[in-house]
């Protein structure tokens, strides 16, 4: 196990390197110039040139890339072009908000979908099952940018239960977490139901049933544990997406997360900031993948980790 972890950690390097290089090339090659965007329409040519020179943007892309890598090796990921603040500090201040929201959304999705999914499977083809289908369809077809404001209107404006937007306090996270977690809950609900059903038709379950175990016990003890594997895959995938894909939720709820920072930085062509965001998000992804794989091993001893 320890060797496996060490190898996985080592494998981080090529992944991160690949992401950094791809992003660097893309952001520098697409049209749009941070200096033009920053100075606006009335800027004088002389101001643009001197700023570009001062920022080192007048050098060839390869030189800029090498000096970025050099900085990276020294642990320096640069200074934002637009805010003049160190990228590292800015990103560090955003991560707690991002993690908090992603975990809360995940928690909501799991708590909501797994029990309901098992229930729907156990009561297959009944009204409960039908209702769970409707709930999950509603969840997936409801875009965030529609659901979020609706939740605010109902629960913050009409009922006054939660703050409208902004971060801080336990009550502030409820609506954003539900908004972000709904799509994931919908997928997990369907997935749990179907994989429980799938497992339920397998031989060992029928054996358990034949042994005279009660239906609930069969589902909880045998079916669920085995059905969780595909669920874990999807949770892993989706959780990664929650890290950077929360832009719309972050925007609606004025949540100071990394997703919004990255989008505004891309729009402003704030190269160092974009690079920094992508770098930390990539690390986040890889860590989540890593945990997913470990969980695989825990849930299904048949998968040998040290393949």
């Amino acid at each position: 196990m320890r060797g496996w972890i060490a190898r996985r950690t080592l494998l981080l390097v090529p992944t991160l390197f690949g992401v950094i290089t791809a992003v660097f090339l893309m952001i520098h090659l697409i049209p749009g110039d941070p200096v033009e965007i920053m100075l606006g329409e009335t800027a004088m040519a002389a101001d643009r040139e001197s700023l570009r020179h001062e920022l080192g943007l007048d050098r060839p892309v390869t030189a800029q890339y090498l000096s970025y890598l050099g900085g990276l090796a020294r642990g320096d990921i640069g200074t934002s072009i637009h805010t003049h603040e160190p990228v590292f500090g800015e990103i560090l201040s955003r991560w707690p908000a991002t993690l908090e929201l992603a975990l809360a959304a995940l928690l909501f999705a799991i708590l909501f979908s797994i029990p309901l999914g098992v229930l729907a499977a156990a009561r297959k083809d009944t009204a409960v099952d039908g209702a769970s289908l409707m709930v999950s369809l509603f969840g997936i077809a409801m875009p965030n940018f529609w659901l979020g404001p609706l939740l605010i209107i109902v629960f913050s404006i009409e009922l006054g239960w939660f703050p409208v937007s902004g971060r801080g306090g336990l009550d502030a996270i409820v609506l954003p977490a539900v908004t972000l977690g709904t799509a994931m809950a919908a997928i997990l609900l369907r997935l749990t139901r179907s994989s429980v059903l799938e497992v339920a038709s397998e031989d060992f379950i029928r054996t358990a049933r034949a042994k005279g175990l009660g239906e609930t016990a069969v589902y909880l003890k045998h079916a669920l544990a085995n059905a969780l594997l595909p669920v874990v895959t999807v949770v892993g995938l989706q959780f990664g997406a929650l890290l950077s894909g929360a832009v719309i939720t972050e925007t609606i709820f004025s949540w100071p997360g990394i997703g919004r920072l990255m989008i505004t930085s891309i729009e402003a062509r704030d190269y160092p900031m974009v690079q920094g965001c992508v770098l930390t998000i990539a690390v986040g992804y890889v860590l989540v993948n890593f945990l997913t794989d470990v969980l695989y091993g825990v849930l299904d001893p048949r998968i040998r980790l040290n393949r």
């Binding site: 690949g18 992401v19 952001i27 697409i30 990664g240 950077s244």
Partner: peptide
């Protein structure tokens, strides 16, 4: 393949979209 997948997942989709459009 898993590393490629990691890279794709960690890559900001919006940047990709802007690049394709450009």
């Amino acid at each position: 393949i898993m590393r490629i997948i990691d890279i794709v997942l960690a890559f900001p989709g919006i940047l990709l979209a802007i690049s394709i459009m450009a």
